[in-house]
Design a protein around this nucleic acid. Structure first.
Lengths: 136, 136
DNA sequence: TTAACACTTGCATACTTGATGAAATGATGA
DNA sequence: TCATCATTTCATCAAGTATGCAAGTGTTAA
C-alpha cells in the first residue's frame, strides 16, 4: 500500500473541498461496518425481518426458513455478536428477539428504502452523469 | 436443505405468535441486504464517510486512504453498483459523491449509532421483561 | 495526432464466509 | 438420576470477495 506517485493533479486542478477532516472516528466506522455486514446477508436480514414480527425460538425460525437448526443458530450467533438480537431462555426454548427499537427501526427503514430505491440492481447503471447539479 | 424432523414441540409448546406473515417482500430483502453488504466493509464505509464530506475524485480518495488507485476504483465500483454513489466526469477527473440525501442519512445514522451503542455485548440489554402474551 | 494523465478492468493469489453434520452442552421432566 | 429435547459449537469444504499489477479506455492539451 501507499503510493507516492507525485500525482500531477495540481491543488487547483479538481474541486478539492475540505479534505482535511479526520478519519471520522475509525472506531465507529469499524463498528458500523461490522453491523452492516451482519445484516448484509439476505438470510440473516430475513431472520431479522421475521423477528421484527415477534420473538421466536430457533426451532420455529428454522422451520419458517426451511433450514437446518445449526444453520439458523449460526446466523443468530452472528447477529447476536453485533447486538442486533437478544435471547432469553423460556423453559426448554430460547427465544430470540430484536435487540431494541433502534434495531427494529433500522430493519424497517432498510426494507422501506429497498422498496423505494430505483429498481436497477445490475441493469441500468447508465444513469451516470445525468442528474443532479445541486451540489450545495 | 429442508428438514421435517417432526419437531416434538407441540403447537402450544412455545409462544407461537403469528408466524403466518409472508416473507416480507423477498425482493426488498434481497436488495436491502445487498446494500448493507456494500457498506459492510470498513474500507468502503470509510470511503462513504469521506464522500459525505464532499465529492472527490478517485485520485484524491486514493491518496486520502493511502491505497492503490485500482483498489479504490474497485471499491467505488461496488458502491456504485448499489447506487450508493454517483459519478460525474469533471474534465480529466471523475468525481464521486454520495447518491442522495437518503444515503447520506444512512451513513450518518450508522456512525451515530455505532458511536452510541454500548460496546458490551450483554450489558444494558436487561430489558428482558415479558411483553409477550398478545397471541393475536 | 500524439503525449500525458485519470481511471477502469482482467487476472492470479490470498483471504473471508457460509453451510452442514456430528458431537457437545444445557434444561426439563419422569 | 437418566432420557430426551433444544440449541450451540466444531471441523471442514465450497464459494465468494479483496487486492495489486499490468494492460486498456477515455480526456485534455499541445
Amino acid at each position: 500500500m501507499r503510493k507516492e506517485k507525485s500525482a500531477p493533479c495540481g491543488p487547483d486542478d479538481h474541486p478539492l473541498r475540505d479534505r482535511r477532516s479526520p478519519p471520522v472516528n475509525g472506531q465507529a466506522l469499524e463498528r458500523a461496518s461490522r453491523l452492516f455486514r451482519a445484516i448484509g446477508d439476505v438470510a440473516r436480514l430475513r431472520l431479522m425481518a421475521l423477528l421484527a414480527q415477534g420473538e421466536a425460538c430457533v426451532t420455529e425460525l428454522a422451520k419458517a426458513e426451511g433450514e437446518e437448526l445449526s444453520t439458523v443458530s449460526q446466523r443468530l450467533r452472528i447477529l447476536r455478536a453485533e447486538n442486533m438480537v437478544v435471547r432469553r431462555r423460556k423453559g426448554k426454548h430460547i427465544n430470540y428477539a430484536l435487540a431494541d427499537q433502534h434495531v427494529m427501526d433500522l430493519v424497517f427503514n432498510a426494507l422501506a428504502h429497498a422498496s423505494e430505491v430505483s429498481p436497477a440492481p445490475q441493469t441500468g447503471l447508465n444513469h451516470e452523469e445525468d442528474h443532479q447539479h445541486e451540489q450545495t
